[in-house]
């Protein structure tokens, strides 16, 4: 979209309501990234749209919802999180305990780092073995399809079976990315919407990669697969350069 041609107010209003079709929405989004005037025009519509969120009447949910959520968070404790006990050791009220902890920590830190490294390596190897098993299994599956990958300086093939929820990409020529970026796989729905199929981290010296693409539904429900460059951690929707595509 030409930056000098501004977006009309009607389209901005529909954009603020989230009702543009995906392709037009992406075009408008790209223009807004570049155009301060249109961003300013959008602001009022966006504020009104945000207000709509609050216009729904509050309704007390069933008590079981709270219980279900408590059960779920008990199972899902991310590793990076710290316990109350660990936080209490940071309090100035316990300088002696803190000092002792520091000495013990210093004594054990080397060992701990080694254990972490081994555990990380083990996890990576297990994940790789699992991906290899999936790839081999898919090859042995009846009615498996193989299609060529299209991309600039990138080639290979995608293997899939329509009624399974994953595909395997074999890609040659993917370059390692600078720090802070990662390849992200997208499954393309018939209406053009993209759903993330996972991340691909290419390391230096890796000429060939094998990646299992996991889909939220059977592969036959998608029109294609694409790979873009995204910020580390991935994105909700494609934002970066497309490096390859596959028509399913």
């Amino acid at each position: 979209m030409d930056r000098s041609i501004h977006i009309d107010q009607d389209t901005l209003a529909v954009f603020a309501l989230g009702a543009l079709e995906p392709r037009e929405s992406r075009r408008v989004g790209m223009h807004l990234d570049q155009c301060e005037r249109c961003r300013a025009n959008l602001k009022g519509f966006k504020a009104a749209a945000d207000g709509l969120l609050h216009s729904a009447p509050p309704v007390e949910p069933p008590a079981r919802l709270r219980a279900n959520i408590i059960a779920q968070i008990s199972k899902a404790q991310p590793a990076r999180r710290t316990s109350w006990w660990q936080r209490l050791t940071n309090l100035p009220l316990a300088p002696i305990a803190l000092g002792l902890s520091a000495i013990l920590l210093a004594l054990n830190v080397g060992l701990w780092l080694q254990v972490q490294e081994v555990q990380q390596l083990e996890a990576q190897l297990l994940a790789q073995v699992n991906e290899d098993r999936i790839a081999q299994g898919l090859y042995a599956y009846p009615d498996v399809h193989r299609v060529l990958i299209e991309g600039e300086n990138v080639y290979g093939s995608a293997i899939y079976e329509e009624y399974l929820r994953f595909a395997v990409l074999y890609v040659w020529g993917l370059e390692p990315l600078p720090e802070g970026q990662i390849y992200q796989v997208w499954l393309i729905e018939p209406d053009g919407d993209r759903v993330s199929g996972g991340l691909i981290d290419v390391e230096a010296g890796e000429e060939f990669i094998q990646a299992v693409v996991r889909a939220p539904a059977m592969i036959k429900g998608f029109d294609g697969i694409g790979v873009t460059v995204e910020p580390a951690g991935g994105s909700d929707q494609p934002t970066g350069v497309k490096v390859l595509g596959v028509d399913l």
């Binding site: 969120l53 609050h54 729904a56 009447p57 509050p58 309704v59 007390e60 949910p61 919802l65 709270r66 959520i69 408590i70 968070i73 404790q77 991310p78 999180r81 710290t82 316990s83 109350w84 936080r87």
Partner: peptide, 23 residues
């Protein structure tokens, strides 16, 4: 930081708004 009590406090404050919107 993984504080469940803080999470449940937020839940108690906003559950009816979240459920109301979803409904």
């Amino acid at each position: 930081e993984g504080d469940r009590q803080a999470f449940l406090t937020l839940y108690d404050r906003f559950a009816s708004r979240v459920y109301g919107l979803a409904l």
